[in-house]
């Protein structure tokens, strides 16, 4: 501070400030693009699919994970304290689940489920579950065929 009482320059001209604003907004746009191009944090996924889990069997070991797959029809057998069933990935991969705790109301064949649990050993396809969750799709189709016409004109 010099002690001089002459008025200081106004901080910045409005054109400079608007140029800077544009620059900053440009930076923000780049940030968004970087985020989107990064495949965005696969760790935030709530579950591993059967395919993913089998692909990384070696690192997963017997760690507790959430495993997602579609219940194979005809494999469900309900036990006293839960259910055992087979879930399938997108290909021919199968995992044999025995889970404790009562399955949710919607649990049925051919529905995608998420099972919390772990593989019995680092090499086995047996999966010990402690909780079954149903992951239903976002499609809603009427239960009684013939009562509703689908958007493509067919009755279903």
């Amino acid at each position: 501070m010099t002690g001089s009482l002459t008025p200081v320059e106004p901080p910045r001209s409005s054109s400079r400030s608007s140029r800077r604003s544009l620059g900053v907004i440009g930076v923000l746009v780049i940030v968004v693009i970087v985020l989107l191009s990064q495949g965005l944090l696969t760790s935030l996924n709530y579950f591993e699919t059967v395919d993913q889990a089998l692909a990384q069997r070696a690192t997963l070991g017997t760690k507790v994970i959430r495993l997602e797959g579609v219940v194979v029809p005809g494999t469900i057998s309900r036990t006293n304290d839960g259910a055992s069933f087979t879930i399938a990935g997108s290909g021919r991969e199968r995992v044999y689940v025995s889970a404790q705790g009562s399955p949710p109301q919607l649990f049925q064949a051919s529905i995608p489920v998420v099972v919390v649990g772990h593989f019995v050993s680092p090499t086995s396809l047996q999966f010990d579950g402690t909780q079954i969750m149903v992951k239903h799709t976002s499609s809603y189709i009427a239960a009684h065929p013939g009562r509703v016409t689908a958007p493509n004109g067919t009755s279903r």
Binding site: L40, T42, L44, N45, Y46, T49, E68, M133, K135, S138
Partner: peptide, 14 residues
């Protein structure tokens, strides 16, 4: 869309 969630995807604004 970005992550695998238990919540289902959009039904209308897909």
């Amino acid at each position: 869309v970005w992550w695998k969630t238990l919540h289902q995807g959009a039904s209308v604004l897909t």
